[in-house]
């Protein structure tokens, strides 16, 4: 019973994790990519918790999703600002 449930759990977890990674990589809008990256970090922390590694999950959630997400959000904002200052054509994040 539990083994079957866990298999289902793993399947959902892995499929969505890979989907999230692909979506974050191919996203044309930088800030959307960052949001997807934060969601990806949370999801990866869940995977580590499922693999019974709470310390790794802790690090992933705090550094990967939290600190990394906030810093990348600031970086994406700066990139968009620079792109709009340059005319908004060259950089891929510049939706101006």
């Amino acid at each position: 019973m539990t083994a079957g449930l866990l298999l289902l759990f793993d399947l959902v977890l892995v499929t969505t994790l890979v989907g999230l990674a692909i979506a974050a990589l191919i996203s044309p809008d930088l800030r959307r990519a960052v949001m997807l990256f934060i969601a990806f970090g949370l999801w990866l922390a869940l995977v580590w918790a499922r693999l019974r590694a709470p310390d790794v999950a802790l690090a992933e959630a705090a550094i990967g999703a939290g600190l990394g997400g906030a810093l990348m959000l600031a970086a994406a904002r700066r990139a968009a600002r620079r792109a709009s200052a340059n005319g908004g054509i060259d950089a891929e994040g510049g939706e101006a």
Binding site: I38, A49, D55, L58, A61, A65, G66, A70, L73
Partner: peptide
């Protein structure tokens, strides 16, 4: 029970982001 600590970090993280 250590997973409760991870949950605590999740709760703090939502506020930060």
């Amino acid at each position: 029970p250590a997973l409760a600590d991870v949950a605590l970090v999740f709760a703090l993280l939502a506020a930060v982001s």
